[in-house]
Amino acid sequence: MKRRIEQSFAVPYTYPVIFSENIFNVGDPTLAELLDNGKGGKAYFVIDSGVLEKHPGLVDQIKSYADAYQAQFKLCAEPLIVPGGEASKNDPQYYEKVVEATHLYGIDRHSYIVAVGGGAVLDMVGFAAAISHRGIRLIRIPTTVLSQNDSAVGVKNGINSFGKKNYLGTFAPPYAVLNDFNFLKTLDNRDWRSGISEAIKVALIKDVDFFEWIEENASALANREMEPMQELIVRCAQMHLDHIAGKDPFEMGSSRPLDFGHWAAHKMEHLSGYEIRHGEAVSIGIALDSTYSFLKGMITSAELDRIIAVISSLGFQLYHPVLSGEMLLKGLEEFREHLGGQLTIMLLAKLGKGQEVHEMDQKLILEAVEKLKSFQSHRLIAN
């Protein structure tokens, strides 16, 4: 006897992405309303150590806020402090501490884990929340440009393993995302600039008007003017959300257009021992794939010049020594493996329009690397 039963269902996901300031001010009930499950929500905070260094009073501020809204939620334990950056994703002890806390403090599926920090910490905490009780409500409070305009608004979580970025991970939408622009004021220049690369990325493959806006505002962004940065973050976040709401939010296929510039970026991060920040690696990856697109005859010399000029004017490097050598090329196979199928790389058909390809010429990749090295040398001479 042979029988077959098929199951098909759809699950809607809705979560708010809120842009605000001073979210822990007791006069602002936004966070308390998110943490109120109708019977006194239980909240567990995990905080990026780098954020705490810049905001030493943050833990006391969170406790005062909880005291003011104790009818809505309560803190179930002292906040957990974890290292910022890729260190939190490279060492499994940190996600294990979050998982252990869910056991020790009775954090269940109707409780909340609140992650405060940069994208790496949010990735790690999100992974721990997703695998505990098959999914605990996660509220992300991103504190960097990169996390506010890109990583925190999406559905991905993960940690690094086997020397590969995000090898272990989940697709699990957050319960809410709460951006506080005030955290950006204390970023160092590298972290302020780093997240702009994700805006360049999405503009180049989806919206030429946005790319031209970045061109026009590059000087203001580089000079840390808050108003254009807020506009960039909101606009970039909206474009990422629009993409996620499209046909393949959980990346069941091999097409990942928002990973333009990322196949090389992920490899550069690893080869540098994560000395290169993610956004810095993405900017070089964008420059590399744009140069490759030019060498393939897909975009014009004038278009490439505009891309290189924008990346340079924002203060990004165009080349790093880890680009040289055969190790970079291994990133292509690792990226294909990460996709789980056919190699699919996003290149440029023109400014504002991406085009996917399924193979890349390794000789042209190395030629593109040499051109970036030349671009960087000429920039140094000019300065």
Rank of each mutant, 00 (worst) to 15 (best):
P12I: 06
E86H: 04
S64P: 00
G41D: 04
S194I: 01
N37Y: 07
S254F: 14
A68F: 12
E33H: 13
H320M: 01
I307A: 15
A218R: 14
S313P: 02
G354A: 03
R137T: 00
V99Y: 09
V125K: 13
E227H: 11
E303K: 12
I62Y: 13
Y274D: 04
D259M: 08
L347T: 13
L288K: 10
Q376K: 12
E231N: 13
Q61Y: 01
N160T: 14
C76G: 01
D289Q: 15
G261Y: 08
V310Q: 01
W213V: 15
A128Q: 04
L304V: 02
A172Y: 15
G352S: 04
E359N: 06
L75R: 07
M239L: 12
C236H: 08
L332A: 05
K165I: 15
F260L: 09
A264S: 15
V145F: 08
P174V: 11
F127L: 14
V59W: 06
T102H: 06
L168M: 14
A101D: 01
V121R: 01
A152M: 07
C236P: 07
F335Q: 08
K247S: 11
A237L: 05
N223L: 07
D28N: 15
A222C: 06
E53A: 12
E33D: 14
E100N: 07
A10Q: 12
A264T: 15
H133N: 13
S313T: 03
S272C: 04
K363T: 13
E251G: 10
M239P: 02
V202D: 09
A32C: 09
Y105P: 01
I286P: 11
I107T: 03
L258H: 05
D259L: 09
A220H: 12
A176H: 05
F73L: 03
L314G: 00
F260P: 00
V46H: 10
M346F: 00
V98H: 01
L288G: 04
S161E: 07
G354L: 03
V17Q: 02
K164D: 03
D188C: 09
T102F: 03
N160K: 11
R190F: 02
E215S: 14
G50F: 04
K350W: 01
E356V: 02
V155K: 13
